[in-house]
Structures are given as structure tokens and as C-alpha cells.
Design a protein around this nucleic acid. Structure first.
Lengths: 351, 351
DNA sequence: TTGTATGCGTTATCAA
DNA sequence: TTGATAACGCATACAA
């Protein structure tokens, strides 16, 4: 570890120390730090040199005060799925690792009427350069408008494009669900059940669309009693399973709009002595840890959530830094999900 | 929403606006904000009044610069368990909700040789008032020393007391594991297997101690081939299950040092056609979502992780604010875990 | 108990 | 292209 030279006393060196050592004004040092264009290569090098030898690191608090903006990006979420949030965080941190940005995490309560006001106060106080909105709150247009009005850049993460490309990172839920259901059909399944996500969630709607899309292509349709509503929680899966699997002629496969509900359906199947996948195939969505922890392991859709975190952060940073870190023109804001086959899917039993 | 009166122009009101309106100096306003003692109730009220009507919120960046300290608390972790981290975060946020603190999240890589240096740079830049260390990095004494030397308060979270009470929040893994194993013994189990956590983790050692404690009390001992090492991951549970359950005379119960490994053991049991809990009882640890998503549901130990988050944050805040927010004398830094009985435990099969 | 002058470390303004 | 000086919004030392 390089011995960090001290400025005057034993404190951290400041911009003044650098200026003195380099024989320039502190504004010039500031220009170097902020990559100003109007500076000769020679003075830049001299300043860089001084910065190096002093081990100078700009004080973020002072910069924040002067810039009227904190070098932070905020993650706003109200997500029931811990793994999703944490994977996303991980991606964000990958992306900002070498910048001088830090991550501020803020869970919000979409149930509370004060949510918007809470977020406003949070953003006004912390003044991050940008905010990332995870689903389901990413679907809230007022929230996006709030960020806009406060001068906080934002990126909305979702299951489909929710906004213009500059403000979006999304997956392609509809397409990949359709693909998964086509696989079931190709295996010979004709009676396929569906457990929906919560009303008002765009992801739930997208997955449902994909499901019907595949069915219709094959000239099939969803029987009323093969459908169950849900809320992305295990218990909803249990209720759905109890409803659908108690039928005289239950479906031979069920698509569940997330893994937790799929686990619920599977528990009911086990409880009823139905073999999975022998008598019942099950597909989930998320590729959460649950998908591999249950038995048999669950076929599901992997959401590229970590990559989405990287992309969201890069979008924010690109927007902030301007041309320097611009995303390539051809980088689509849609990151594809992939269907993952595991043990819970097999051909339907012979009649 | 109350119309927020503006100070001079359309900007946010500053301490100057408040001082002008209240007819006092800005230093007096500052005293009110920082709860100085030397102030008359009358002026305090006048200032409070002015703050209210202006909707004044102190600018955290300016405070940070003047205080040489950011009003943030940092969460440092390198935890494989997303749910744990997020629950802890939730607790922390509960605790700081009404303060003007915000949460900074920083995953670190304990595998990297640069971890300490990374953390140092992070803390020097962000200057949080305190840091919370989650296991396993909470067990790193150098990290604690680093915080100390940088003047950053810290709290270490663990499975047992790792430091003096001021710097600790812990559970009582040893005791509660012993309790759980005693239940197995009381049910009649005599051959009980054990799947250990990773070497070098204090939690793994504590749980192991508790396991042996209960066995010894009952005059039992752990057979060599009923033991398997592990690393807290599902795959380790699978390996352990394959080893232990392939024995001619396998144990009738297995204690796994966390839920993921328990899920792995359970999968193997299912695969071998062993009934759980009919032929094999299984106990896990963590009460993660997995515990209730698998079938049958898993008896496990609930770690009061969210409460630990609350406590950790309160400890930091108390330390920061001094007497005002002091923790009660009798608040122990040990928050008890509890054993939760679900479906995966039953008496052993008759011989 | 209150106010004045000054500092915190950086960026912005505008003239040179 | 550079530099002197004034913000940025608040806290501290010291005086009143």
C-alpha cells in the first residue's frame, strides 16, 4: 500500500494542497478532476502528478454541496422478492464499482398514501444523480414524473417497455412465457392451467398475454376452471393448486406466473399424491432460489436481473456523464429472459 | 399537501430564510436543528414555527461538509443469503425511518485481498457515521479495527458475541440449536446426523457446539459417518444427503446448519423414496423462504434478523446522538432465536 | 442564552 | 486557457 503523503497536517490532502504542489490555482485542479476540455495537456499532467503523489481524493461532501447534487444513485423498491432486489443491487454495484458513485437503497411502501411525498422528501434531501425504480413501483407514472420534476434522472425496470428507451430497462416476459408454453404444447399437453400474478402488475399482464398467445397459436384455449388468480406469494399458489387440482379432470400442466406460486401448487400436488412431473408438469417464473430448492426442481424463466442492474446503472451514469460514457447506439433496453428446463416438466400421462 | 412556502426565489428555503423569518441569527436556528440545550423554549418555538411555515429541511450535503461526517449509515456485507441481507436492511430502515439518516449499502468481496483497502476507501469517501457488519465479514477483526481507526462507529452482527456489547448484536445459535436437537431426542431419535456449515464461520461453529451439547446431555454421540461438512449451499446438502442416506443404517434425523442444505438433504430423501418425516426427520436453520416453500415444510430456527437490523441501527444512532437516544441499560445485545416446528419432524420409525 | 466571524472543500462566475 | 473571488448551506469558536 503506497504511503499516503499528507497535505499540511495529518489530515487528508485537499484541493489546495494539490494546487500548491502543482503550482496552479485550485480551480485548475478542479478542472482536471472534472475533465474540463479547456486545459492544456501539460498542466493536466502536472496536476495529475500532484494528485498522485499526495494521494488526493476529492471530498464527496464538498462536491455534493457545490454541485447541488450528491454522487449517489438511489434504488427505490417495494419488491416482495428479496433475491430479485439483491441481484439487481449486485448488478448496479458491478456497474458503478470503478466510478465514484455509491448506492443508496430505499424501500418504499406502495400501500401508503404518503409514498409519493416520502419519495419526494427522500430525493430532495439526498439529491442523488439518479434513481432506479424496480417493479412494481416502476409502473407508477407519477413516480417517474416526480423524478423528472426534481431533476433526478431515472430508469424504470420492468417486464415490458414502460417508457421511452432512455428511461427503461426491461425483459421480454411475454415472448419467453409464450416460448415456455409452446414447449408444453409440443410435449403433448392440451389442458394447461394458469395461475396469474396480482392485478395491477404489468408483469402479471405480460405473462398472461404470452400464455394466451401460445395457446391461441395452437388453437387451444384456457378453461375457466383451469385459471386461478394469485398475488405472487406461496399461499396463493397453494390456493390455486387446491382449486385446480381438485377438479375431476385437472390440467396436465400448469403455468404459474412466478416460482413461489409454483412451489405452492407443487406442494398441493405432493399432498394429493400426484406425481410431478409424471401426472402434472409445472412451470414457474423468476428462477429464484426456490426453483432449485424444491423437489423436483422447477422449470422456470430466468430473468436477467443482475444484468438489468448493470444496464440501469450504466444508463443513469451515461446520462449523467454525457458523451464520455454513452451507451452504444445498438444497445437495446430489452434484455432477454431465458426458459430453463428442469425436472418439473414432462409429457402428459397417457390417457 | 401543504403548499411549501418559498424562501427568496423559487429555491428551497435555507437556514438564512428561517433565521430571517424567526428574527434570530442562523446560529440559533442551527442550535434548534441540532437540539442544543442552551436555548430558551420561547426562541425554540419561534424557530420551529418558522421552520414549519417555510417547510425548511436542512441540506444534508452542507451539514455533511460542516460536520465532516455524512448522515449515513453503511451496511457492509458479503452474505450468500439474500433474504437475510434484505431482512436486515428492512430492520435498519425501520429504525432510521424517523431520523434523517439514510442507508448506504456496500457488498464487499471477502475473497479479494483488496477488501480492507476497498472498505477503507469507501469509508473515507462516504464518511458514514457508522457501519454495520454482517456475518461472515463481521467476524473479521481487522475490519472492526479499521472502522475504529477511521472514527466510524461499527456494529458487528453475529451468531455469538464477537466483541464488547457496544459493538455487537447477536443471536444465540448455540442454545437454540441445542434446544432443537433436544426435541429430536425427546421424540425418540437416537441416531442423529449433522451437516456442518463452512469452516471459518463462527455461526457454523456455534451451531455445531449446540448440536453436540444436546447430544452429550443425553449420553449420545455423533457417529463419524453421520457427519458431513458443508458450505451453506444447496449442493452441499445434496452431497451430504447422498453420503449419509446411502448408509446401510442411516440416521433417523438430520440437523442441517442452514435451510438450503436441509433442502438439499430433503431432495435426496425424496429421490431415494424415503418418507419425510416418516422415515427421516430434518431440521434446518434460518427460516428462509425455502423453509416454507419445500414439501414437507421445514422445521427450522428463526433468526431474528430484522430485529437485529433494528437493534444494530439503534446502537449506532444511540452512540452517535449520545444520551438522547441511549439504549436502555438492560437491553441485551443478544436477541434470541426461536425454534419453529413444521412438518419435517416426527418420531423415528419403529424398528 | 445569543450573535459574529470564519471554516468545511469544492465548483461557478467572470474577468484577464 | 487560467485565476481571484464569491458562492454552496451549515457548524464551530469565541465573544457578547
Amino acid at each position: 500500500m503506497a504511503a499516503r503523503a499528507t497535505g499540511k497536517s495529518g489530515k487528508q490532502p485537499t484541493i489546495n494542497d494539490v494546487a500548491a504542489l502543482a503550482g496552479v490555482s485550485k480551480k485548475t485542479v478542479s478542472r482536471v478532476i472534472n475533465r474540463s476540455e479547456f486545459i492544456t495537456e501539460k498542466t493536466r499532467l502536472a496536476v495529475q502528478q500532484a494528485i498522485e503523489t499526495l494521494g488526493f481524493v476529492p471530498n464527496p461532501q464538498a462536491r455534493a454541496l457545490a454541485f447541488r447534487r450528491n454522487f449517489l444513485i438511489a434504488l427505490l423498491h417495494d419488491n416482495p422478492n428479496a433475491q430479485t432486489v439483491l441481484n439487481f443491487q449486485q448488478g448496479v454495484l458491478d456497474a458503478i464499482k470503478d466510478s465514484d458513485l455509491a448506492l443508496l437503497v430505499r424501500p418504499v411502501d406502495r400501500g401508503s398514501g404518503a409514498m409519493l411525498e416520502d419519495v419526494r422528501i427522500f430525493l430532495e434531501k439526498q439529491r442523488p444523480i439518479g434513481a432506479m425504480l424496480l417493479p412494481p413501483i416502476s409502473e407508477n407514472d407519477e413516480l417517474a414524473a416526480l423524478c423528472e420534476s426534481l431533476g433526478v434522472r431515472y430508469v424504470r425496470v420492468g417486464s415490458a417497455l414502460l417508457d421511452d428507451a432512455r428511461h427503461c430497462v426491461s425483459s421480454n416476459d411475454r415472448e419467453v412465457v409464450a416460448e415456455a408454453v409452446r414447449k408444453l404444447i409440443a410435449l403433448g399437453h392440451r389442458r394447461i392451467g394458469f395461475v396469474r400474478g396480482p392485478a395491477g402488475f404489468r408483469s402479471a399482464a405480460e405473462r398472461e398475454k404470452g400464455f394466451h398467445e401460445a395457446l391461441e397459436e395452437a388453437g387451444l384455449s384456457l378453461a375457466d376452471d383451469h385459471y386461478a388468480p394469485g398475488n405472487y406469494r406461496y399461499t396463493a399458489g397453494v390456493e390455486a393448486g387446491e382449486k385446480i387440482l381438485s377438479l375431476a379432470e385437472p390440467p396436465t400442466a400448469i403455468f404459474c406466473s412466478n416460482d413461489e406460486m409454483a412451489a405452492g401448487v407443487m406442494s398441493v400436488a405432493h399432498g394429493k399424491g400426484m406425481a410431478v412431473p409424471g401426472e402434472l408438469s409445472i412451470i414457474g417464473f423468476d428462477d429464484s432460489p426456490t426453483a432449485t430448492h424444491i423437489w423436483p426442481t422447477l422449470s422456470t424463466v430466468r430473468w436477467p436481473i443482475r444484468e438489468m442492474g448493470v444496464r440501469a446503472a450504466r444508463t443513469l451514469v451515461a446520462d449523467f456523464l454525457g458523451k464520455e460514457a454513452k451507451l452504444a447506439e445498438d444497445e437495446s433496453p430489452v434484455l432477454p429472459s431465458t426458459f430453463i428446463e428442469r425436472q418439473s416438466v414432462a409429457p402428459p400421462p397417457p390417457r
